[in-house]
């Protein structure tokens, strides 16, 4: 599975402060596609992870993320506060996720037939990530455990938990994205954490 490792997070964290996000948003508003690409590089993994954890299929998640960035570029003029670009982007992604739910009738893919995050053959993925087969297997299994834990949550709990689990999103930003109060969001995140922790704790005990 193509999980982002710590090195990627560190790289993103070290690059992020240097990027003038506001400047990029202003340029993208003026139609600068290069600026949008830089914003894409900065946010795509977080948006993709959110969408993937909500729909359970990477190929479907990438389609949704594609629609999200295309919509964002076309509706840039509707963004009133440039500083809130990240929340606005997640709101578009969230709307697209719920649109997908409505189209297919169920929220997440069945746990009986869980979608893999990466549909490529295992050998190819292992080669691509330079991981040992054991590491790839463990990664896939952990991903399945996380996904099965998320499937125990209702839609509201899942979305706030997933958003809060992404780095750099505060309770206030999560509340803004989902259009709920900070108190209600905190409560749902707490309940969701209990469920997910319990599920993973049981998995670790079995191991």
């Amino acid at each position: 599975m193509s999980t982002a490792n710590d090195k990627n997070f560190e790289a993103e964290a070290s690059v992020a402060p240097k990027v003038d996000t506001l400047g990029l948003v202003r340029k993208a508003k003026a139609g600068d596609l290069d600026a949008l690409q830089q914003l894409y590089v900065k946010y795509v993994n977080r948006v993709l992870s959110f969408v993937y954890r909500m729909v359970g299929s990477k190929s479907e998640a990438e389609d949704i993320v594609q629609d999200t960035f295309v919509s964002a570029y076309q509706k840039m003029s509707e963004l009133k506060e440039d500083a809130k670009f990240q929340s606005w982007l997640f709101t578009i992604a969230r709307n697209n996720v719920y649109q997908t739910y409505r189209t297919r009738g169920v929220a997440m893919v069945s746990l009986d037939h869980p979608a893999k995050a990466d549909e490529r053959p295992v050998a190819e993925r292992v080669a691509a990530k330079s991981k040992t087969p054991e590491a790839a297997y463990l990664s896939d299994e952990l991903d399945h455990v996380i996904q099965s834990a998320l499937s125990l949550l209702n839609d509201k709990q899942r979305e706030v938990f997933v958003l809060s689990a992404l780095k750099k999103l505060s309770y206030e930003q999560v509340a803004e994205i989902v259009g709920r109060s900070v108190g209600a969001v905190k409560m749902d995140i707490h309940r969701a954490r209990l469920v997910v922790r319990e599920r993973i704790k049981n998995y670790l005990r079995r191991e």
């Binding site: 999980t3 982002a4 993994n45 995050a117 996380i146 992404l166 704790k201 670790l204």
Partner: peptide, 21 residues
């Protein structure tokens, strides 16, 4: 458990995704 979720929560986009967009 929290650390495992944190470490395995993020996934990476395919290199061709930007080309498609």
């Amino acid at each position: 458990a929290d650390q495992l979720v944190s470490d395995h929560f993020m996934i990476e986009a395919s290199p061709v995704l930007w080309t498609r967009i």
